[in-house]
Design a protein around this nucleic acid. Structure first.
Ligand code: MN
Ligand code: MN
Ligand code: ZN
Ligand code: ZN
Lengths: 142, 142
DNA sequence: CTCCAATTGAAAATGATTGTCAATTTAAGC
DNA sequence: GCTTAAATTGACAATCATTTTCAATTGGAG
């Protein structure tokens, strides 16, 4: 519920308006977990709200990313995916190339070593992306 | 020179043919270091060999990746980039979001921790990708 | 050399994303 | 509530990298 308010506040600060469509898309996004493509969310919303267009879903997902409610992800394929992000926390991904499963993990030790690498190169990290591709426990080591 | 033979051997094992175009594209790829998009390599080759088509460059880069001479990379933007890869070694990237500079690094400690994460999840890693985005020394910390 | 499969280059197809624009909706100001 | 300017919407077209198609050409095994 405060998520929804966070989005409305963001729209206000940007001089944008709350609309019926944006509320519907936000609701659908918050309900469905996981790593959704625009297409996937659009198809799901269309079942209950056939009037809402693809472009509006696309534009709203970008707004959600701007508001900090969603984060965009780019895995192997070409399409952008979005997932909910809860403020400060960060996580990376294990991706099974056999069944497509996506596991999430956090590892403070790795993040610290990333900072060390950055320091060694005089680099200031703003974000990062770590993806481990392979086979999940269910699919076995090939 | 043995690189070129490695590619010819790969083509043979796949029942494919060595062609004038593939040799030219291979030469151009080996000469120019860095992280090249298909477009960039195509434009460069076109200067000396206007007859070679974009599709052929594209197809040959995929062959080079298959042969192990090239590795495909996907950074923030939408296009695929290729870089030479020398057999076993592996590296990851620091990418400056201000000037576009790409620095390379290797860190055995991080790789070991990645294995630890995988073990914790019963996962078998086949490949990985680590990209640190931020500002390089030249561009300053914003 | 012959001949068939592989290759090439131009052009079209694809697929995700982004832009356009007339009609509609929002919300601020009265 | 009513008016009104600005933002939004949805259908559709445009864009961009990538991939496919296909007729003409070429490689190389026999
Ligand atoms: Mn995730
Ligand atoms: Mn590199
Ligand atoms: Zn799996
Ligand atoms: Zn820089």
């Amino acid at each position: 519920m405060e998520r929804k308010q966070q989005f409305r506040d963001y729209l206000l600060t940007q001089g944008l308006k709350s609309t019926r469509q944006r509320e519907i898309i936000l609701d659908a996004f918050l309900q469905s977990g996981g790593h959704l493509s625009t297409e996937e969310l659009y198809l799901q919303i269309r079942q209950q709200h056939p009037g809402i267009g693809y472009a509006t879903v696309h534009r709203t997902l970008k707004l959600l990313a701007g508001s900090g409610l969603a984060e965009s992800r780019h895995f192997g394929d070409r399409q952008t995916r979005y997932e909910q992000c809860s403020g400060e926390d960060h996580h990376d991904h294990l991706i099974c190339t056999a069944c497509g499963a996506i596991l999430e993990f956090e590892d403070g030790d790795i993040e610290r070593l990333q900072q060390r690498v950055a320091r060694q190169h005089g680099f200031h990290i703003l974000s990062h992306r770590l993806e481990l591709y392979g086979r999940c426990a269910k699919c076995g080591p090939e």
